[in-house]
Amino acid sequence: MPEESTPLLEARDLVKRYGQVQALDEANFTAGEGEVTALIGDNGAGKSTLVKSLAGALRPDSGQILISGRPVTMSSPLDARAAGIETVYQDLALAPDLDAAANLHLGREIYWFRPLRILNKPEMRRRAVTAFADLGVELRDVSAPVASLSGGQRQSVAVARAVAYASKIIFMDEPTAALGVLQRERVLDNIRRVRDRGIAVVLISHNMPEVLSVADRVEVLRMGRRVARFRAADATVEQLVGAMTGALTTEEATVRSGNGDSAGENGNGDGKDAA
């Protein structure tokens, strides 16, 4: 598997402890460019902690994060952003009193006169319109405060912002949780479209059918460590649930026995599942 030898994003043995709680227990994770990797697990399995660590919002106690095989330290979301990583958080992280265009450009304003930091609002609005149109997002007014938008539209604003700036990886934490059926489909379409641009999409979701329909690969987290990996095409909902609840384990042994990540654990996992 030559394309697996240097994945775009790789986490090795991440550990994060909150007092008594071991949120991440030598967790591993891999995401490749141009593919959708679903990260699933029961509540408290450590998904959010893992994503926050990978997005620079949290510093793991130990472990390694590699981008294109090179170790990186991400001590702030800015570092992650500079590395081409964007995150759509579950709480969306929008400023409700600002309009969609302002939210899209928050922290990345476009200036009309840079020395005085005078904003170029028309240009930002234009780009926002383009960004939303690219995503096929329905937004009737990019200059209405985000607070006045529906849940789905707010979601779209957050997704559009991530898509507009991510050059390598997008993390999406439950991006469809608050959405209706149609909007959900549209977000999934967006995810595929982003993937087709060669970006690695990491999707956190509780919705198994959705995971199987959009993901290329699935990684399962349980009690702070990765316990299974699947090719979505080969996996069933029962298998995923089994892995989440601990009934099915495909890689515990491999990981326990040292840092042999490249030593064909993919083959191991996939082989078992395919069989």
């Binding site: 919002a57 979301p77 800015l78 952003r81 995150t87 958080y89 709480d91 992280a93 929008l94 400023a95 409700p96 009193d97 600002l98 939210n103 928050l106 922290g107 990345r108």
Partner: peptide
């Protein structure tokens, strides 16, 4: 409006 949104946006 939302200090956390600002923080995450850098």
């Amino acid at each position: 409006s939302n200090p956390e949104a600002g923080r995450r946006a850098g």
